[in-house]
Amino acid sequence: MIEISNLSKNFGALEAIKNLSVKIQQGSITYLVGPNASGKTTLIKSILGLVKPSSGSITINKERLNGNHEYRSKIGYMPQVASFPDNLAVQEIFSMIKNLREGFVDYDEELINLFKLEKEKNKRLKNLSGGTKQKVNAAIAFLFNPEILILDEPTAGLDPVSSSILKDKIVSENKRGKTIIFTSHILSELEELAKEVIFLLEGQIRFNGTIEELINSTSKHNLERAIASIMKGD
């Protein structure tokens, strides 16, 4: 379980997150939605320890984050933009990431196979297309069978086939009890995947609940209109 309490983050004068508290239950799929600059990525990065909170606390399975690093072995992260050293080959990236966690053996290489990354393994990363880099990125996030998966715009840049492979993978991992948090601008993905919605606006939570509750709360008929009406601030 991820528990965030009274989290605030300022970048100079800009308040990216304002006094935000939320609990994310184990085994849930949570969709983090909000307009640009609403604090989605800052929230995700705070959970990963990439961004240091100005105040408040985050605990993951009762362990409070305070600059420690071991807890991240439980988290698989797929950033929005994937970038690797230009002159390494695909297989070197995988062997490097594996090498950094000695003693781990139970790799989940399903995505490497499904994305057919094997045939790209000797290509240097600078020669890969954006979509292929994104596939490598996704495969790394799932590689260590993490309890928690944090996916920032996971399907952006993927073709429909790969995108559905990834979505199937997300659903099957969730069925095995993994906690999943993802952001996306594609609303249809929400209906397909997520059960829980956290709607962020200007660094605060405007809505937190299930999809049905969201639609009911706005007296609109479908999800897209419900979200649009919250975004407009009705």
Binding site: L50, I75, Y77, P79, I97
Partner: peptide, 10 residues
């Protein structure tokens, strides 16, 4: 972005 990727590792 590579630094970010590495920092998301333990």
């Amino acid at each position: 972005d590579y630094v970010v990727l590495m920092l998301s590792q333990p």
